[in-house]
Design a protein around this nucleic acid. Structure first.
Lengths: 189, 189
DNA sequence: ATCACTTTTTGCCAAATGGCAAATATTTTC
DNA sequence: GAAAATATTTGCCATTTGGCAAAAAGTGAT
């Protein structure tokens, strides 16, 4: 819970009253490994903040293969697609790679909280825009790199994920097969 | 000019006064083929809308290779990075692939226009978010596709670009070499 | 029409990656 | 701690892509 308050404090000042409001509206939930947080086609009714664990975002391509689009780790808002919209139905899945803890707010409560924190709405837009830009840059870079470069880039950018995320998911994220990534790893050592 | 008004009308209603305001603030400019619209490191002072032509967005990777990140064609706002911020200095280049016509607004005028159109600010955020999401999805898809799939996807999504953009830029965008793309093209026929 | 210049295609071969299945290694469960 | 389940590595070979340079095709100016 404190983690979420700290997160917000990075971007806006909060007085005691605001903090209390946030705390009163927050619900802490847990996900066990392999549990879904979102499923494609099911409307999302909450805004979530991940305090512990790792979640992966994936979809099925037209060959029916599961493609990992990215990972979310602790201390990040879950902002896939247009979650913030009042009604949002994702076209992809979010599932827990490890056991997870989250703080969630109903959209109604979230709205109420937003309204009491001056400028929060705009700040949130900027956070989203920043996340988006980073993802675009990150995905774009992959395209012009070979497997080894992609992997080196990955471990440099997400050192804390490497040991918590199965190889197969990283491979999918990087757009190489699992066996290729295994060989790439071997060559690096 | 009318093209820009039409663009805005897709998202918001405008009365005569608002249209006149927009017209009075707009400046039409032209770019000749290969001219830069933005250069990395040079602060952007305008908001631009492309009415004719094609622009490509590119950067240099760590090997010094020019990587095309995407193309912008007519009737689109130029919204790379956080252009909308008051001060924005891009880290990439935008250059005209064909002769281009644009409508541009100084940031000051843009702000003034925004303030007279109710909800415009929010609508703009949504447009940006939508553009971003599309780019993320588009780039992500590439990663799990081979060259042929990437190219087929490209011509399906951007049929009007294929004949106006040199092969080498498309190849760079798709993350394959020029000669590979040439062979891919041959196989498709 | 010709020349100069740019873009695209092609040939040749090397390197990287994929596909599949079996062998190892690691983790989980009882 | 052993058995079962899951994840990773490896071997083998086919396919794809890259790299480089030359040839061919296309474009534009005179």
């Amino acid at each position: 819970m404190e983690k979420f308050i700290d997160y917000v404090l990075q971007f806006a000042n909060l007085n005691q009253q605001q903090m209390d409001l946030i705390k009163s509206k927050a619900t802490e939930i847990q996900l066990r490994k392999d549990e879904f947080y979102w499923e494609a086609g099911k409307t999302v009714k909450q805004i979530g903040f991940l305090t512990d664990g790792v979640i992966r975002v994936f979809y099925y391509n037209n060959k029916g293969e599961e493609i990992t689009r990215y990972f979310i780790d602790e201390n990040h808002l879950i902002l896939s697609g247009n979650t913030i919209d009042e009604i949002y139905t994702p076209s992809e899945y979010l599932s827990a790679i490890t056991d997870c803890k989250l703080v969630v707010f109903s959209k109604q409560d979230w709205k109420e909280i937003s309204e009491t924190i001056i400028g929060w709405e705009i700040i949130l837009q900027k956070i989203i825009a920043k996340h988006h830009s980073e993802k675009i840059i990150r995905r774009s870079k992959l395209v012009s790199q070979d497997g080894t470069e992609r992997y080196l880039d990955f471990i440099q950018k997400f050192p804390t994920l490497v040991n918590r995320v199965p190889l197969s998911f990283i491979a999918s994220y990087l757009g190489v097969t699992q066996s290729s990534l295994s060989r790439i790893r071997k060559n690096i050592r």
